[in-house]
Amino acid sequence: MAVEESVRSILSSEFGLDSSSLETDAAIFSAGLLDSLNSLRLLMMLESQFGLSISPLDVSLDDVDSISKITETVNRLKD
């Protein structure tokens, strides 16, 4: 839950998404809430927040298209 809360916080504070009302599985990029250009900033925020190393060359839409997917991706990379 801590990761999901942090992800929601990043989406809210950095991208202005009203993430408190965003369903966990709701599409973010494919629904147009963020565009692919925002993905890089999101990855940098995740790297900084969770101490990860993420190459944009290894991240697909399926890894970041919802809060639950971003959370899963972060948890996978943390392991």
Binding site: S36, P56, V59, S60, L61, D63, V64
Partner: peptide
């Protein structure tokens, strides 16, 4: 909407030899 990995996968899967994109794409 494509992430960079999706774009790379399509370039390879479809045997693409030529790509037209923006300077943003070119850095990747």
């Amino acid at each position: 909407t494509l992430m960079i990995k999706d774009l790379i996968d399509i370039l390879n899967d479809r045997d693409i030899s030529a790509f037209g994109g923006s300077p943003f794409h070119m850095q990747f």
